[in-house]
Structure formats: C-alpha cells, structure tokens
Design a protein around this nucleic acid. Structure first.
Length: 802
RNA sequence: GCCGAUGUGGCGGAAUUGGUAUACGCACACGACUCAAAAUCGUGCGGGAAACCAUGUGGGUUCGAGUCCCACCAUCGGCACCA
C-alpha cells in the first residue's frame, strides 16, 4: 500500500470537520492556547503564515492527548489600511473586500488542519465585536483616560494619515515606507503613560522571551532624575527641565528648548523674533528622518536669559531641534562640559563650557575642555557640592532644590501617550458626540455600536479629516445629553484597538449583554500565546495596557493577559521575508498538492528552531516526504502481524527512546529536533523490522506521539492498526526509564583528555573492572608506565592523565 | 553610539550539569534494481597519506571546553540627539 496523501488528507479532513478533536467536557481540565490572529488580505496565505499556527496546534494537540480540553480559537483582525486603500482605488466597499478575504483565508487556514474552535470565531470589523471595542473606549473616556490634544504628529503624506510613534519607526511609515513629516492636528489620545510603571513592573514575573521583555522595557524607558525650574529673567515665567544629571547643575551654562515648546515664542525678545520664527518654521517642515540624520546641530538664540538656581548666574536660552518636544519637559539645561550633544552645540555657537566633574586629581579643573566628560568623578567648581561624588551630589542638589522650592527628584519615561485617532474610514468610529453646550458626550452604551455608514468616496482628505466627515446624515445627530443638534466624532480608531482586547472576547464571543461574563472570564485565561516578533512591542504593550485598565474597572480579575508568550521566527525565502505582494513566497496550496498537509506541517517544524528565522528550502521538504513514505511503508508492512509479534528488548528500547526524545524535546520547545526524533525512531524500527516484526504496542505508541504533528497520517495509521476512531481519546505515553538501560555500553578512553579508544563493557561493570579493561585496551599508547591520575566518569569515560 | 542575539561540514542544523563534535535532513558520489530514466534501496561523505588538526580569532580556567571566563572580529535584530 503506497502512501497516498491525497486520499488520507481528503478522508480525515472531512472526518475531523464532522468530529472535532477538541471535545469540551466539564470533567476535563480546561486550557486556552492562542495564536495571534491574522489580517485577512485577499492574497491568501503563504507557508510562512503556517509556522505559528502549526506550532500552536502541535502544542494544543499534545495537551489534548494529556487529557485536557484546549480552547484554541481563531479570528480576524479585519480593520485595516489595505482594504481601505483598495476601496479608494476601486470603490469596492471594504466590508465586501474583507468578507471575501476572510473566506479565502479561512479555506486556507482549514488546510492546516488545526484543532480550532470555529464556534468562537470573531472578526474585529464585525459590529457585534466592535460594539465592545467602542464600549471600552467609553469607559476610558469616562475615567479620563481618553483626551483631546493638539499634537505635532507623525504624518504620512502618502497614506494621508497620522501615525503613532510605534508606526513611524525610523521616520518611515510602517505601511508604505514613505518618509514621514510632522503635522499639527487635534487628536484623541489615550493615557497609556498612566500605566507606565505597571507595564514595566508587570514584565518581571512573566514567562516571555528575554528579548521581548527588553524591547518593552526600553520602549517604556524609565529613567531617574530631577525636575528643575529655571526662572526666566525679568519675567514671571519658569522653564522646567528634566535631567538625570542634577549633579552637573553648576555646569549648566545655557538652556535649550525644543522649537515646539510652549514658551518658545513667548520668551523670545523682539530683536530675535524674526530669526526664531524662521527657525521654527524650518524645524516643523523638516521630516523626522532629516531631523534625526542631521549631523550638525542647529539652533537659534531667543534673546532671553534664565537664572541658574545654583549659581545665580544668567544663562542664555536657545531653541534647537536636537531637543525633543515630547520627551521630558521638552527643555533641557545644557551642560556642555559633561554632555556630548551640549558640548557640540556650545562649540558651534561659542557658549560657555564649564567643568564641574574631575575624573581624577591630575585634572586642571579650570583648563579648557577638549570634549565632554560623561563619567563619574569628583565634583568641582560647584559650591556646596564640591568634592562629592556624582551620586552624593545628585542627592544634595535634590535636597537644595526642594528647600528652595525650585525642583524635586522625579522619574521620567520615554513612553508617550497613545495617539488614538485616525483620519480614516475603515476603523471603529470613536463613539462620541460633540455638542455646543455639553461639550464632548459619549454615545450611550445602549446605542452601541456606532456603526460605520456606507460612503461613496473613501478618499482621505488633505485637511486630515476622515472620509466620514463628508456624510452629513451620519455626522449630524442629537446630543445624547441635551438633545440639541450635535456632531459625531468623525475620527476612527487605529488598527490596534480591536487586537488590544480580542483575546478576551474568545472567552464569550456571543454575549450580547456584556463584553464577557465574569464566569467565562474566570474560566478562560490565556495559558499560552504565540506570534511573531513584529508585534513584540506595539501590540503586546497595548494589550497589556487594555488588560490593566479592564482590571481596574472590575471587568477582569487578572492584570496580565499573557503570562506565557512564545515568539516564533519568520520563514524567509531567498534571505528575505516572505511576502505575497512582493511575489517572494511559497504557496501552501502547491505544497499540499504535491506532498500532503502533514508533510508541510512537519517540514515547517523541521526547518529550524522555532524561535529563529529560517530559510525555506524546496529540497528540504523532499527529505521530510521521504520520511513520511518510509514511516508509512513500515506501518503497512508490519501492522498486519504486529499483534503476533513479540516485544523484544530492542523494541522496548526503541519505543521508550522515542517517548523520551519526543516528550523531552517537546517540553523544551525544540520542535525541529522532535521531527528528528521521529526520523530516528522510524530508522531504528525499520532496522529491527528487517529481522523480525514490530509489535502492536510500539506501533500504537508511535501513532499517539505522532498525532499532534501529522494528524491525518497518524489517524490513517491508527486505523491500519485495526483501531477505532478513538486516537484522541488515547493518553500521552510515559517513558519506562528501565527500558533505556542497555546490556552493554560504550566507554570512551582518553589519554590526557584526548579520545584514543572505545571499549564496550556490560552495563553492570564496576568502576574497577572498567578502569582495568580500559588500561588493558590503551596501555600500548601510554607515554609512561603508570598514569599520574585516572579520571573516571561513571558510565561514560576513563581519562588517563600523565 | 547603546542594548540584545548569533558565529559548528558544501547547506539547514544536533550536541543533559563541561565528558566520543558534526545527530537528523539536504546536496553530492558510488553501487543495486532497470533496456534506460525517475522512484526506491544500499554504501560513503569535516580536513589530512599519516601522525594529527578542526566548532569566528587570540588568550585563560580544567584531567577534559562548541559549552565557563577575558579580549577582539564578523553578521543579524531592536533602539537611536531620550538630556
């Protein structure tokens, strides 16, 4: 009987469609395994998509075979720019495009044969779903977490859309790669910074890849320092700065504000007005990439002076775009002697440079400095903190600031509030109404969802308004508070909104009255989450933020959505990320046709360590396919007589070796080597089969172990063994360690640490016997009569040292 | 620049707590089967004639190092004027 993957796939795909593997029962322990849901594009899947799905399904099925019910849901992150861009070009409504895309995706996802609970399928663009996305926003609004602000924002001139910092990494639009510029717009913001500390603390106890934790830590970017107020001379204005180097306060010889700083224009003297206006104009028109790439620092003097609270001296106030508007207070005290950037700036504009730290006693503390000194040392030229070290000086300065009411110790975060509005059509409408008398009023919860209306034109506007703004019949609505004519908010939410809480909805996807029932919430907590690195910062940070908020308002009884997260590597082709739109991909459909679904599942695992990026190799899959046919052949040749075949010591060893290798490697997440273990197992059994047969129990054990990896083939093998359709009621086998002890073992003989000989001894041989045998075997190679030392490692080696 | 990771055959990659480096697979070569090819099966496959030498480079610890320590080099990823 040949291995016919077409027949096997067809038969079992159908069977499991009608008889799902994952049967819920109150009796069984429940688990919840989740893989990141995809954005359904019309182009369909490539084999790279398979990787996380296969990995998650293998782990799920293994847990099922250990007697658990594992909820493994699937859904669609279906709002997004591609559908809208397509609509702009063709006029086809994004809802139609999305529906079609989901259909294509779903067919292809089903080919993977994962044990998904399709009953729990969700789609973020479904009004029944986004009703609750809007509901969460309203709760945030009520708690003061959502607010409006004029923002200088990253703006993509091509997409005509505002981007969050996370979407404009490196100064390029994440979607289209266009260089972004800045634009000032009124935006809805979420106060994620209120949760900065919790988001940071929460990372500690989580079972996440270290690199992902590090990335989040860095993104949150906590630093300890002080806030110091500098009085602007001859005014009542104060410029506050954040610094991590309060110890260098005596060395602050000028100040720099970012060009966007609130006080920038207000403090400018008439004489400098023209120069300042010109500079600010230039700064705002520069793209962020130019601004970052600028080697030369530029700036302009405001004409104003501030008073250094420590020295009492007047110091000039400058504007420069090397100071970031949205970090700290958007202003710095410049200490050119001890900060490289300030040093460059001071050199260029001939500003005072003053040494206040000496690295050692040989330094001439009054000599001109050649470069900024960043390190620790003894404080000099600094009044009451002289001779202290850096740390002590920081404390002393903080105390001085407190006493004089001009500053205090503080912490600062890089994390910024989340720009939450998008000037787009295909997203969740922000459920607010603007009323002349009542201000901004949330849409009452019973009126949710605020559904997206059909529009004629999806073209975004250059003014930064959403296409929704053109639909008067939708925009005009009575104020929910007073009934007077009001206007709907026309901005929509960003892509991340739905994915920031979707995991929760799977617990209770059909609940019309609540976001989730408390019973379902308690029962279904995500035990395992899996997905690609590309979402390691943004998505995972936002989900954690939403979860913490939902905890705070009493919806959840836990504060972290994903205590355990695994990050899979990408599958590359020709060294580059697979991409349908760039034509650089391998289609799973072709592979399934040629080799069958299980071969692809196995190859996707075999291709490399799951956490590493791997290169797709068409030849590699042939090897896995050969293994499948070899395994199949072994079964078809031995199954018939298996019941009459005696279990030999060799078979017992082979069986337990396989159990141990598969189980251990699965536990350590080494999925590529699990496939190797199956290959070794089949090679071993095929060897044994040459002289005898393979017993029933060994073949059954193989099938049970194989079931999570190659479900269709394993099912067919199960049937071949004369079993009923009860493969998934079986229990994961346990290894009998005794069976792994062989009668004989190989002992390595080393001389001075180098391998010289092997001897085979009985497994019961004592140390003395082994050393004696080793001496006899290696004596001829001894450089002297008697070794100075003999190292014996039990059961492994003897090392003669001379 | 800072942070992190990774360097092992022609290739993808294996190697419990330091204990036979190169498992498993690909590619390749030869052989069997065949009129022939494909498929399949079998054998070989780091270098070297050998002694020996080989896990990015140079040191160190150890009876023994791919594994631990120090210093470099290279590649990849993240962040990047964060005060």
């Amino acid at each position: 009987m040949n291995f016919n993957h077409h027949l096997i796939d067809k038969k079992w795909q159908k069977y499991y469609e009608d008889n799902p593997v994952n049967q819920y029962s109150d009796e069984k322990p429940s688990l919840y395994y989740l893989v990141m849901f995809p954005y359904p594009s019309g182009k369909g899947l490539h084999v790279g998509h398979w990787r996380p799905y296969v990995i998650c399904d293998v782990l799920t099925r293994r847990k099922i075979l250990e007697g658990n019910y594992v909820m493994q849901p699937f859904g669609w992150d279906s709002f997004g720019l591609p559908a809208e861009n397509y609509a702009v070009q063709t006029g086809v409504h994004p809802a139609d495009t999305t529906r079609d895309s989901i259909k294509i995706f779903k067919t292809q996802v089903k080919d993977i044969g994962a044990a998904y609970d399709w009953d729990r399928e969700i789609s973020t663009a479904d009004p029944e779903f986004y009703k609750w996305t809007q509901w969460i926003f309203i709760q945030m609004f009520k708690k003061g977490l959502a607010y409006e602000k004029d923002m200088h924002l990253n703006w993509c001139p091509a997409c005509k859309v505002v981007l969050a910092n996370e979407e404009a990494i490196g100064g390029e639009c994440e979607r289209c790669g266009t260089v972004t510029t800045k634009k000032q717009l009124r935006q809805w913001m979420l106060r994620i910074t209120d949760y900065a500390e919790e988001l940071l603390q929460g990372l500690e106890e989580m079972d996440w890849p270290v690199k992902v934790k590090k990335m989040q830590q860095e993104w949150i970017g906590k630093s300890f320092g002080a806030e110091i107020g500098f009085k602007v001379k001859d005014t009542d204005k104060v410029v506050t700065v954040f610094t991590t180097r309060a110890d260098t306060l005596f060395g602050a010889t000028f100040m720099v504000l970012s060009p966007e700083h609130d006080l920038a224009k207000a403090i400018t003297t008439p004489g400098q007005r023209e120069a300042v206006d010109k500079y600010c104009e230039e700064a705002s028109s520069k793209s962020s990439i130019d601004r970052m790439a600028a080697k030369d620092k530029t700036g302009v003097f405001t004409g104003a002076y501030a008073v250094n609270p420590a020295t009492g001296k007047d110091i000039p106030i400058w504007l420069a775009d090397y100071v970031l508007a949205d970090y700290g207070t958007g202003a710095i005290m410049a200490v050119p002697g001890h900060d490289a950037r300030d040093f460059d700036f001071a050199k260029k504009y001939c500003l005072d440079i003053r040494r206040v730290i000496a690295e050692n006693d040989n330094v001439d503390v009054n000599a001109a400095m050649q470069e900024a000194y960043i390190g620790d040392g003894r404080i000099v030229n600094s009044g009451f903190i002289n001779n202290m070290n850096v740390k002590a000086a920081q404390d002393a300065v903080a105390e001085f600031l407190e006493e004089n009411g001009v500053g205090r110790k503080t912490v600062n975060y890089k994390l910024r509030d989340w720009v939450f509005s998008r000037q787009r059509y295909w997203g969740e409408p922000i459920p607010l109404v603007h009323c002349d008398t009542c201000g901004v009023v949330p849409v009452p919860e019973e009126q949710l969802p605020v559904e997206l209306p059909y529009v004629e034109s999806y073209q975004p506007t250059d003014t930064g308004e959403s296409p929704l703004a053109r639909i008067e019949s939708w925009v005009n609505t009575p104020c929910p508070a007073c009934g007077a004519p009001g206007k709907r908010e026309t901005n929509t939410m960003p892509n991340w909104a739905g994915s920031s809480w979707y995991y929760l909805r799977y617990a209770d996807p059909k609940n019309h009255n609540e976001i989730v029932s408390s019973e379902a919430m308690r029962k279904w907590k995500c035990d395992f989450y899996l997905g690609g690195v590309e979402h390691a910062v943004i998505h995972l940070l936002y989900v954690r933020f939403y979860t913490k908020f939902l905890y705070d308002i009493g919806v959840l009884d836990y504060q972290e959505p994903f205590p355990r997260f695994f990050c899979n590597g990408m599958v590359n082709l020709n060294g580059k990320k697979m991409s349908k739109s760039k034509g650089n991909y391998v289609s799973p459909d072709d592979i399934i046709e040629k080799y069958g679904r299980d071969t692809l599942r196995l190859y996707i695992l075999f291709i490399g360590p799951p956490e590493a990026d791997s290169e797709w190799d068409d030849n590699g899959i042939d090897g896995v396919y050969r293994f499948m046919t070899r395994a199949w052949r072994l079964f078809s040749e031995t199954a018939k007589n298996a019941k009459n075949t005696k279990e030999t010591k060799e078979l017992l060893y082979a069986r337990n070796r396989l159990i141990k290798d598969v189980t251990d490697r699965l536990d350590s997440f080494s999925l590529n080597t699990v496939v190797s273990a199956f290959m070794e197992g089949i090679n071993r059994l095929a060897d044994i089969a040459k002289t005898g047969g393979v017993d029933q129990k060994t073949l059954e054990t193989f099938v049970i172990l194989f079931a999570p990896f190659a479900p269709n083939t394993a099912s067919e093998m199960w049937e071949l063994l004369g079993k009923n359709m009860d493969l998934y009621s079986q229990r994961w086998p346990e290894c009998d360690e005794k069976a792994l002890v062989l009668d004989e073992k190989t002992i390595v003989i080393q001389i001075n640490g180098k391998v010289r000989e092997n001897i085979i001894v009985t497994s019961t041989a004592s140390k003395e016997e082994i050393v004696e045998a080793a001496t006899a075997a290696a004596k001829g190679r001894f450089p002297a009569d008697v070794p100075a030392k003999t190292i014996y490692v039990p059961g492994k080696l003897v090392n003669f040292v001379f």
